[in-house]
Amino acid sequence: MIVAFIQRAIVQGIPLLFGSTGEIITEKSGNLNLGTAGVMYMGGISGVIGAFLYENSVETVNPVLAVLIPLLASVIGSSFMGLIYALLTVTLRANQNVTGLALTTFGVGFGNFFGGSLIKLLDTDVPSIALSATSKCFKAGFPFADKLGVVGDVFFSYSFLAYIAIAIALVTSFYFKKTKSGLHLRAVGENPATADAAGINVSAYKYGATIIGSIIAGLGGLYYVMDYADGVWSNDGFGDRGWLAIALVIFAVWRPNFGIIGSFLFGGLLIIHNYIPNLTLSAQELFKMAPYVVTIIVLVVISMRRKRENLPPASLGLSYFREER
């Protein structure tokens, strides 16, 4: 049972890991994208639309195309969201919080509208779309996982997107610490005026970080539909994972490598109520609060320790305009 719990916790955690890694990259540029929930939703529905069109246009699905088409669709959808955000906040200098919240509303609305439309097209009794053929291709894992017993179950039983999530988090961590471009990105988020005076193109970094961050977050939505939900899209099924991803950013103190462990922990906390026997319905709801409570505790601990490295990027949430006086 413990093995099953760990497995489910990791599967639960992967969408959060995508979301938080994306959001960390965005926030490191000083852009507080509260639209992550909308971006992830968008990534999910875009993938669903791509898969739906492909599955319904061919007799037998080609596994490579079945993965590539939804992936590409998802990337287009979520990068579009990132582009809107960057355009509004960087070029037009709109308020970041308002823009982010608007994107959440927009992303969820967009997803529910097209999700609903596709369901109508199918004309089925259940209010959902099942893309089992595509999902099968996404879920293909290591063939040798079964032979390795517990080790295989815990470490090798996941689909390729899960490993990509971890790889992206590690690469991002390396990027921040060890590359010049990462140093520049952090400088932009900490003090854009300094970065600007040092000859760094602030706007380019902000655009780049926001769009790449959105694409990564969008993959979380895709993973959720294609792997976690077995290719079944139902409106609002995604829940509040987008907000959990933002909470995870704080939990991980803006470090993608901490985010990996954090996401598994959050995933575990999300489902722990299923593994504790004899819980009443209301007690279950209390347990679902756990990830948020943990985030609050982390915030309290961080502010008590007051270590400068653990604070959010100094200019997070502020727009930058060079000639402002």
Binding site: L183, R186, A187, E190, N191, A193, T194, A195, A197, A198, R308, E309, L311, A314
Partner: peptide, 11 residues
Amino acid sequence: KLVDVFSAVEN
């Protein structure tokens, strides 16, 4: 124009 959380060399 310095980034507070960076070291001297990084700046």
